[in-house]
Design a protein around this nucleic acid. Sequence first.
DNA 1: GATAGTTACCCACAACTACCCACAACGTAA
DNA 2: TTACGTTGTGGGTAGTTGTGGGTAACTATC
Lengths: 155, 155
Amino acid sequence: MSISENTFTGEFAYTIDAKGRVNIPAKFRQSLSADSDQTFVITKGLDPCIYAYPLSVWQSQIEGALRSLSSINAVNRQFIRDMVRYASTVSFDKQGRIPLTQILIQHADLSHDALIIGMVNKIEIWNPQILLTFEEQAKTIEQTDYNELAEKIII
Amino acid sequence: MSISENTFTGEFAYTIDAKGRVNIPAKFRQSLSADSDQTFVITKGLDPCIYAYPLSVWQSQIEGALRSLSSINAVNRQFIRDMVRYASTVSFDKQGRIPLTQILIQHADLSHDALIIGMVNKIEIWNPQILLTFEEQAKTIEQTDYNELAEKIII
DNA sequence: GATAGTTACCCACAACTACCCACAACGTAA
DNA sequence: TTACGTTGTGGGTAGTTGTGGGTAACTATC
């Protein structure tokens, strides 16, 4: 139960090189190596960004749930397909970078700059520009809902 | 319970050559060789695609379940017939390809392009065009059920 | 048994990827 | 300041991967 049990916080600016690689912040890597978990599962985010889960988190929380869904049900099949289709297992190189897949780069509309945001149990990878406009739009979000959440969680 | 326990994720585009062979993604093959399980069982998918199970998965999960179904029930008989009738055991060649049978190619309406999708414990082989139109239709799927799943599983 | 069609196995090559090394920028400590 | 380690970025190379096609073995049919 140390601080380092895969809790990601903070925001970091990096570049994506010609080969589609992004750096994972050293801080994040350190909190992983403790778990000897040098691997991420990256996939489409619900927002226009890329999600990256440490392999252990993906396996225990997502994959397990997916495995338990019956394939007889068409809704289940569709859901599994959506979740897994864009997911890929990547580990970082000696320099601490992971390779992104073309589909995910397109989904997040990434080109040269990348913003990496710690989201507690996962990591988000954004195009900084997209994030800006996205947040503009998000201001029209239900303020009531937002405040309710804030009241519950912020201490 | 190692990393290599047959977890298929991701989407890969390949071609079907004149002899009806498709490539199995190298990533998938690697997670198999650990199991010395170089063989797949391919059969009709519930959707218009081909299912491919690693032999070990087919034997332990599907075959067992089919055996336990009573043949008194006509629905059971029909179901077993559908599952087994089109199933064939194939192993891949030195280049990592498997041969598809004519019936399955027709069922999935495959011609030149194939999209291989990891579905956790099995693999789906789609005609990319068919998948597109299929997903269009799928949007009319019960959104409520889908969202319930999403809320439970996505973290 | 001969012939035609099919299947299994092999080789070749282009494209890509993983792995490695190099180096500049930065921070830290003596 | 200087020396040293770490971090982020770029690029080269060797090995792997995907695709096409050739040849020999096998099957089936007459």
